[in-house]
Design a protein around this nucleic acid. Structure first.
Lengths: 175, 175
DNA sequence: TCCAATGTAAAACGATCACTTTACTTATGC
DNA sequence: GCATAAGTAAAGTGATCGTTTTACATTGGA
């Protein structure tokens, strides 16, 4: 496995499980099995490493939603994501908050991800209902954001609740 | 103003705006205008300070929901909270995640708060519909959690979207 | 009046932070 | 076959971390 990939995977896990600031560079180098010199050659700084981690996570997350054409698909994919990766809240928002919104590259990574997510939901809603519906898309976004955070303390059954609520909102918007 | 109150208020603002780990003890002592010796006499440790901050925030938050008997009241109170305090995501979940779920007193403060929130929503739903409805309450919780986090990047108009979605779910549950 | 409590300022604690540097080894490609 | 690139281990950078301690000032109640 490529050094850079190994580093980014390790960093994503450590940042997600223990927090960004709480994760020291030595934990990262030991975890990835590389020297600190190599780490800095590859990613330049801790902040930049986080930005790269977030971009990579965004790509992987969006890939998991790639084939979704209904809210059933959407929440199915979310449930699979939580089962695979765990549910500890949105890493993008957590990274943004932990750095006080003061690190531009992290603000941008968060903003990019959220814009893509919103766009993807818009597409799914259009595929499901046959027309654009901003209000419905925004409501579904709220349920997605809600289940992402509620699943951390109420467990994965919350995904089913979110799906049923989404279905109700779709039905209500169809008439 | 009481020293302890001043300390807790200062800590809540700094933790919320800049993150828990990123906030050093010197920022806290300077912010509250006290010596580090006094800080430690009063709260014992940084982790304990955070736990106290969270408990105090929970009391204040619950007080802001005290008179709510409908989803209109609920999301009205939420909108007022965001307007007063800003919207940077749930401080309880953020604190829990930043400390990796490894600090018992913070895990407990988060758990207590979420249990109270869930209970309060259950009561509001019962007041609105005239009967207990776990599924509806859980859906409203998802919208509350959703708007808490989506408002950080989509602004306060999201509160209205959440309210309209909640009304739809209430209507759908009434028939 | 004097003891105890409560506060301050400031230094010291050892640990750890992100990051750089030095000195050396190991591959790779022309 | 030899320069170049890419890696290692490990020491060192100065700053900052959370916390404790020392030495001293102020104050309120028995």
């Amino acid at each position: 496995m490529d050094i850079r990939t190994r580093l980014i995977d390790t960093a994503e896990q450590l940042f997600d499980r223990h927090g960004f600031t709480a994760t020291g560079m030595d934990r990262l180098t030991h975890g990835a099995g590389i020297s600190s010199r190599t780490l800095y050659k590859h990613v330049g700084s801790k902040n930049r490493l986080l930005a790269i981690v977030l971009d990579e996570r965004d790509r992987r997350f969006m890939r998991s939603l790639a084939s979704a054409v209904s809210v059933d698909d959407l929440f199915g994919a979310l449930g699979a994501w939580f089962a695979d990766e765990g549910a500890r809240g949105c890493l993008f928002l957590r990274s943004w908050a932990e750095t006080g919104g003061e690190v531009p590259e992290i603000v941008e990574a968060m903003t990019r991800h959220k814009a893509r997510l919103r766009q993807r939901i818009e597409e799914i809603v259009e595929a499901e209902t046959g027309r654009r519906d901003d209000e419905l898309a925004e409501s579904i976004l709220l349920l997605v954001e809600g289940v992402t955070h509620a699943a951390t303390y109420r467990g994965s059954a919350t995904v089913d609740v979110a799906l049923r609520a989404a279905r109700r909102l779709v039905e209500a918007a169809m008439v």
